[in-house]
């Protein structure tokens, strides 16, 4: 199983590569069009800031590539936000795979939302084996709104937000599966088995 992990100016990709290694997948970090197109699965990880990331993707035309892929694709953390239509972070137009807006958490509670929180309203083969007492690890200040057409799990922090999204071959998760212990490994294994 060849997994392409998209290389761009976002942090924390090493952990995703190690998680793939632990699960026995052959993952490579690349921004090469052909390699990404030929791979069995694509992971779009990242931590960072939306506008800088979009600028980088556009300069290398990776935005067009990402929108045109047809193998199973998994956006993680910032990857989820970039797959949405628009982010409030520096008023950024994103990739638009999901017609969903990304907003900043209000300052009613501590922001960023850091720590373990549970998944709710699970509905997808990607989440097979999990329940609403499955916890995943979050670190984020922005969230994707809930859209019943695409949201396959929610998490509650101040209000419900999209924990995971799915449309056609595109999947995305706000929390970090690579840091979410057995629950994260279940999700990544399910993704590899799609």
């Amino acid at each position: 199983m060849d997994v392409a992990v998209i290389k761009y100016n976002a942090g924390n990709v090493q952990s995703v590569l190690y998680a793939m290694e632990r699960l026995g997948a052959n993952a490579i970090l690349t921004d090469d069009w052909e390699t990404i197109k030929k791979s069995d699965k694509v992971i779009f990880p990242g931590q960072g800031e939306a506008s800088t990331a979009m600028k980088y993707l556009k300069e290398r035309k990776l935005d067009q590539l990402i929108s045109s892929l047809d193998q199973p694709f998994f956006g993680i953390c910032l990857g989820l936000q970039l797959l949405c239509e628009h982010s409030e972070e520096y008023d950024t137009t994103c990739l638009g795979v999901f017609p969903i807006r990304v907003k900043k958490f209000p300052p009613n509670e501590k922001v960023p939302h850091i720590g373990w929180n549970n998944l709710q309203q699970l509905k997808s083969p990607l989440l097979e084996g999990l329940t609403d007492s499955s916890y995943v690890y979050y670190v984020h200040s922005y969230y994707a709104e809930v859209d019943p057409r695409y949201t396959i799990a929610t998490t509650h922090y101040m209000h419900d937000f999209s924990a995971l999204l799915h449309k056609d071959n595109y999947y995305a998760m706000q929390a970090h599966p690579e840091k979410s212990s057995e629950v994260g490994e279940t999700i990544l294994t399910n993704f590899l088995n799609l």
Binding site: Q14, S15, Y18, A19, E21, R22, Y137, V139, H176, E178, K179, S180, S181, E182, G184, E185
Partner: peptide, 8 residues
């Protein structure tokens, strides 16, 4: 640690 441990 990063290669082995699956929590932050």
């Amino acid at each position: 640690v990063a290669k082995t441990v699956n929590i932050p």
